[in-house]
């Protein structure tokens, strides 16, 4: 499967970072949908059906972990892997607990992002 066939939803309330991640992943050829808020995210997701969700843990107006929990109880969405990113130290544990599959601390190396994304998508492939 080629990277172009993967559709990744990126959610971050910081527009700069959102654009940066989008740019990075596009460099690898992924198809990116970027959102700066998690409003109606379930409905949105059910329509979009992305292969991977990459989201910041702290979103304006919502806790990424709560949002993640909602995905994971939704049968249609629960299989979609989630990568949670955060600048908060020691957040990894709580993110994994909330159902996230991967955690990436901010700031991160671009190669680490690519590595995590490809690892996560590999599971989708299988």
């Amino acid at each position: 499967m080629q990277n172009e066939q993967f559709h990744i939803l990126v959610i971050d309330d910081n527009a700069d970072i959102l654009f940066m991640i989008k740019a990075m992943l596009e460099m690898k050829g992924y198809k990116i949908t970027a959102r700066d808020n998690p409003e109606n995210i379930i409905v949105f997701m059910e329509a979009l059906k992305p292969d991977l969700i990459l989201m910041d843990m702290l979103l304006s107006g919502a806790d990424g972990r709560e949002v993640c929990k909602n995905f994971k109880v939704n049968k249609q969405l629960s299989n979609i892997p989630v990568i949670m990113i955060s600048a908060l130290p020691d957040a990894a544990g709580s993110c994994i607990e909330s159902g996230a599959d991967y955690f990436l601390g901010k700031p991160f190396e671009m190669k680490d992002l690519f590595h995590t994304v490809s690892t996560a998508l590999a599971t989708v492939n299988n």
Binding site: N14, D16, I17, M20, I21, A87, K106, P107, F108
Partner: peptide, 9 residues
Amino acid sequence: KTPITSIKG
């Protein structure tokens, strides 16, 4: 860390 993430990226 937020601006650094951005710069670094």
